[in-house]
Computed example of a mutant assay.
Amino acid sequence: MGPLGCTLSKKYQNSTCKYRRTRDIRQSFFKTSASVTGETAVVGNYSFDQETVRLSLAKMIILHKYPISIVEDIGFKQFCNVMQPLFKVISRNAVKSDILKIYDDER
Rank of each mutant, 00 (worst) to 15 (best):
G44C: 11
N45K: 11
Y46V: 03
I70F: 00
F30V: 09
G5S: 10
S91Y: 06
M1I: 13
R21L: 10
R20V: 06
K88C: 12
K31T: 04
G2K: 09
V36S: 00
K77D: 02
T40N: 02
T52V: 08
K88F: 07
K88N: 14
K31R: 13
D24R: 02
I68S: 08
I62Q: 12
A58E: 04
Y103T: 10
F76T: 01
G2F: 09
P3S: 04
M1W: 05
G44K: 05
T32G: 13
R26M: 01
E51F: 03
A58C: 13
I70T: 03
D104S: 10
M1V: 14
I70E: 00
S56L: 11
E39I: 00
F79M: 15
D73K: 07
G44E: 15
G75E: 10
I61D: 05
E72A: 13
M60I: 09
K31P: 00
M83Y: 14
C80S: 11
A41H: 08
S28V: 00
S97Q: 11
K101V: 02
T16E: 14
F76K: 01
Y66F: 15
N93S: 14
S91T: 15
K101T: 10
D105V: 12
L100Y: 05
F76I: 01
P67D: 13
D98W: 12
S9G: 14
F76Y: 12
T32V: 15
R20C: 14
C6V: 13
I61Q: 07
T52I: 08
N14P: 00
L55Y: 03
L100C: 01
V43I: 15
P3T: 03
S56W: 09
T40V: 12
V42I: 14
S35M: 00
G5R: 11
Y66C: 09
F48M: 07
R23N: 10
P85G: 06
I99S: 05
R23I: 02
Q13L: 13
Q13N: 03
K59E: 12
Y12R: 10
L100P: 00
N93L: 11
S69F: 04
G5D: 15
V53W: 06
L100V: 02
D105F: 12
K77W: 04
I74G: 01
K96N: 12
F29P: 00
Y46G: 02
T37G: 00
K18C: 00
P67I: 02
T37Y: 00
Q13V: 08
G44M: 04
E72N: 14
K96P: 01
N14D: 09
R21H: 14
K31Y: 05
S91V: 07
F29Y: 14
Y46L: 08
G75L: 07
